[in-house]
Simulated scan of single mutants.
Amino acid sequence: MPALAIIPQIRTPITIKPKIKHKQKQKPKSFSLSTTPITQASFSDPFVLQLAETLEDSLSPSVSLQRLRDSSSESLLSTSWPSRKDEPFRFTDTSFIRLSQIIPITKPPQFDYLPSINGDTLLPNIVIADGFVLNSMSMLSTLPDGVYVGSLLSDSSDRIAERVLEFVGDFEWGDLFWSINGIGAHDMTVVYVPAGVKVENPIHFKYVSVEGGEKGSKKLPVSNPRVFVVVEEGGEVGIIEEFVSKEGNDDRYYWANPVLEVVIGKGAKVRHSYVQSQSLNSAHIKWTAVRQETRDYGKQDCLRGKTG
């Protein structure tokens, strides 16, 4: 089964207004995807609900990510699995994912599986394996003062965390796969560039898919890496995203479901490049969303795109 492919989509700007007030919810009981679906309202998709509960059960509690998880969970209550009858997926068959045994990846891989993974670049880089940030394999010492790149959960600066969390959960244009990422992300990788700071060399994100199912097993390990970039007024940064398989996994089955969100301040600049070199038996759904403050009115222009 070749990797899924979706032509990138660019849509007109929208104004973002929160529509849902989140309520405290009880954690659902755990059950596998193979069990009989529980009774839900008529607009619910039993398969999507089962997948959401399986992802929720695989996560550790996180105060920082709870708003994102809650909004994603609420969205999935009324979202069905897409078919070719849906316009965005008219040329894309997602039944490969739907008919697989989707398995959340619950822990980072052993370092033994990732030899010399950052030895091919001199750029500041960060390694994300199966959705987990590997700080020991990342090289970020050349970044300018004040620039932070790393895990939201391990950030020691309350100021940066508070600034990022102002935006988390406010992007409301996403589809099913956007929400699956939001409910399944173990952590969030943050890039924060202060006002007026220019990062000369692009930051290289290397996403590595380590877990993989064998042919005929129908097992499809899923990872949900999420990256949030905030560039304050007048700042500049370049982002390179590269998606690869672990060496020797060129024929394995897995699902990478990443999301990149970018907030660009007035007069700031972000350059973005994207490289994909993964197993042809894998599924890859990618969301990139950008919110940019205009020079004249201070409003937010929103650009969004999805590739697969």
Rank of each mutant, 00 (worst) to 15 (best):
E293I: 11
M139T: 15
P108R: 08
I117Y: 04
A161G: 07
M1W: 03
S30E: 10
S32W: 07
E261D: 08
E162Y: 02
S78H: 12
P37F: 02
N118F: 01
E233K: 15
Y274I: 09
L220S: 13
C302K: 01
K219E: 14
H186F: 02
L152T: 07
L165F: 04
G196A: 04
G196Y: 05
M139H: 10
L68G: 01
I38W: 09
S179G: 05
R163P: 01
I102N: 08
I126S: 07
G146V: 00
K266L: 09
S71T: 06
T39M: 07
K219S: 13
R11W: 04
S100T: 13
L123I: 15
I97F: 02
L33M: 11
P258L: 00
K25P: 01
N125R: 14
N224L: 01
Q101P: 05
V222L: 07
V222P: 04
I20P: 00
A268T: 03
K215H: 14
G308C: 11
K286F: 04
L123N: 07
H284R: 06
I10G: 14
V259M: 03
S60H: 13
P46C: 04
L303N: 04
I16E: 06
M188V: 13
S73R: 00
Y253H: 12
S217L: 15
K218S: 13
R291L: 05
I126L: 15
R90Y: 08
L76I: 13
Q276G: 12
A289H: 10
A129L: 03
M137K: 14
G131V: 00
Y274E: 12
L260C: 02
S34T: 15
T307P: 01
D145N: 15
K215A: 13
N249S: 10
F243D: 06
Q9H: 10
N181P: 05
L4R: 02
K206E: 11
K286Q: 13
Q300N: 08
P104C: 08
S209L: 09
I6P: 01
G119F: 03
V275R: 11
V168T: 08
F228K: 03
M188D: 04
S100C: 14
R252M: 12
S154W: 07
V230I: 08
A289L: 05
V190R: 03
F228E: 06
A161S: 12
S62M: 01
K269E: 13
V222W: 08
N118W: 02
N118P: 05
D112H: 08
I97T: 10
V237T: 09
I14Q: 02
F43M: 01
L176V: 00
E87A: 06
T35H: 15
Q26V: 02
